[in-house]
Structures are given as structure tokens and as C-alpha cells.
């Protein structure tokens, strides 16, 4: 794969997904799954939506203590990996390059196209406006989870933060909503990736070589 792409690219250039991004992506995938499923185990001890609990087979941890232990182990993975990812994205300019700018007209265009099942995906090296928006939302939701999670974990040490979030129970609800947003993204993300399997391979092997590093010019389609 690598050789083929290099040959097509004509020279060794920057990949769509550089190795650090791929590693961090998959660490994040594991961390998110740990956090979400162990969170469901914790949730079930005192449900937020009355009448709704997560089935036992969906929970990580056979009872609350172990769901909590998974959650408080997974948080390090998620937070440290997330911080490095954001740091990397800011320093290399990747976040700005890939996620900005989002134009409203572009957004409406993509939504219209999507509704007509005319989704453009021949070129996987640039994100359309909806993709950009979704990635920004999920990054913000991830950051929000760390903040609301901190408030729930240490409501006395961070009592100011808790009152900012509207109290302890409100912080719990926000933490739950954050999970729902991330889970919703995850479902969509996985479905779309399965529809365009090249994107999965790209996240494993690096994907096509970008035409010119730093430029937003389109790379040749595979």
C-alpha cells in the first residue's frame, strides 16, 4: 500500500493521516468505548432518564465498582491521548487545516446533497462542511466530558465549576448528554466509514499522500 501510494504520489510526501494521528485515533476509539460502556454501568446504579437503563450485556464492569474502576482508568487514556491530539493538531496546524473554515452555504449544500443521496466521497482527503462540523462537535463534546466529568468526580474541590454547570445533578445530566452526543457521532462515523471502507484503510495505513504539505489542494484520488 505504502509503496503504491508513494509511486502514485510520485514522491514521499505527507500522508492524509500521519502515523501519530492514526495511533491517537485508535487509542481514542478504545478509550471512548471504555468510557461509554463503563459509564453505562455507572448510570444504571441511579438512572437519569426514569424508566431507562442500559442492558447488562452493554455495560463494562460486572457491577458498579468495576464500571467505576474501568471509568477512572479509561479517563487517563482518554484525557492524556486527547490532550496530545489537541496539542499535535494545534502545533502542526492539522486541526485548522482540516476543520476550518466552515461556510454556511457549503454546509447547506452538503446537507441538501446528503438528503438526495448524492454524497461526494471520491476524494477522502478533504472533509465536507458537515464532516467538519461533526468533527468539531465531537471534539468539543470530548472536552466537555472531561470538564463535566471532573465536576462530578470532585464536586467539592471544583465547587465553582459545579455551580457554573448548574449543580451536581445538572453536571451529571450534562455528562450524560455529552455521552449521547459522542455516541451518536460514533454510530454515524462508523456507518459512514463502513459505507466508504477506503477511509478505514486510510486510518490504518495512512491513506493517500497529500499533494503539497500544508496546502489544501486536492490529492489525486486513489
Amino acid at each position: 500500500m505504502s509503496a503504491a501510494v508513494t509511486a502514485r504520489g510520485g514522491r514521499t510526501g505527507r500522508r492524509l493521516h500521519p502515523l501519530p494521528v492514526r495511533i491517537m485515533h485508535w487509542i481514542n476509539a478504545v478509550a471512548m468505548l471504555i468510557m461509554i460502556t463503563s459509564g453505562w454501568g455507572i448510570y444504571d446504579d441511579d438512572v437519569i432518564i426514569r424508566g431507562f437503563h442500559f442492558a447488562k450485556f452493554l455495560r463494562l464492569g460486572d457491577w458498579a465498582a468495576w464500571s467505576l474502576n474501568w471509568h477512572f482508568a479509561g479517563m487517563w487514556l482518554l484525557a492524556i491521548n486527547g490532550l496530545i491530539y489537541l496539542g499535535y493538531g494545534v502545533v502542526t496546524g492539522r486541526l485548522r487545516e482540516r476543520l476550518l473554515p466552515i461556510r454556511v452555504s457549503e454546509l447547506l449544500h452538503t446537507v441538501r446533497e446528503t438528503l438526495h443521496f448524492r454524497l461526494e466521497h471520491a476524494d477522502i482527503t478533504t472533509y465536507n462542511a458537515v464532516q467538519k462540523l461533526l468533527y468539531i462537535i465531537v471534539i468539543l463534546a470530548g472536552i466537555s466530558q472531561v470538564v463535566t466529568g471532573l465536576a462530578i468526580w470532585k464536586p467539592v474541590q471544583f465547587s465553582g465549576l459545579v455551580s457554573l454547570l448548574g449543580g451536581f445533578q445538572s453536571a451529571r445530566v450534562l455528562h450524560f448528554i455529552g455521552m449521547a452526543v459522542i455516541f451518536g457521532f460514533l454510530v454515524l462515523h462508523v456507518v459512514l466509514a463502513l459505507l466508504v471502507p477506503r477511509t478505514i484503510w486510510a486510518m490504518l495505513a495512512g491513506g493517500p499522500v497529500l499533494a503539497r504539505p500544508g496546502s489544501r489542494a486536492k490529492a489525486p484520488g486513489p
Binding site: 455507572i42 448510570y43 446504579d45
Partner: peptide, 10 residues
């Protein structure tokens, strides 16, 4: 003060 249970209620 608030009593906060590990289960989530308070």
C-alpha cells in the same frame, strides 16, 4: 451539606 452517593444521587 450535600450528601453525594457513588451511585449518582444526592
Amino acid at each position: 451539606i450535600k450528601h453525594i452517593c457513588v451511585e449518582g444521587w444526592s
